[in-house]
Amino acid sequence: MRRDVGAGRILIPTTIRRGDVIDVRALVEHPMATGLFRDPEGHPIPAYFINDVSVTYGDREVAHFAWTSGISRDPFVEFPLRADREAPLSFTWKDNKGGVFQQTVDIKFAA
């Protein structure tokens, strides 16, 4: 039904200077089914949600989220990050059915 389960997007500011605390926004397309809803024919929709998110900046994990199906569909999260080095920022979303989705952006400083 869904077009792209697991399609992730990361949004960071276009110009970043060394030492800035930047705003990181990330969204991944996912139904986040609780397992409590039923489809129009009355069949229960099985639980299908992201329960583990890891954020790495360079070689270090800077944040780790443990989620339940209580997070909305197409989960979105926004948080700050101290940009003190030029390195890739990557998100890894894992769901309860073993799906692993990844997205990476490069943090580069403005000249």
Binding site: V21, S72, F79
Partner: peptide, 23 residues
């Protein structure tokens, strides 16, 4: 599910702030 989410942070997150959407 009462405890819907846990966000583990490190000092590299320069500021204690978090925004998301819940059910």
């Amino acid at each position: 599910d009462i405890h819907i989410a846990e966000f583990r942070l490190t000092p590299e997150i320069g500021q204690a702030f978090l925004s998301t959407r819940i059910k």
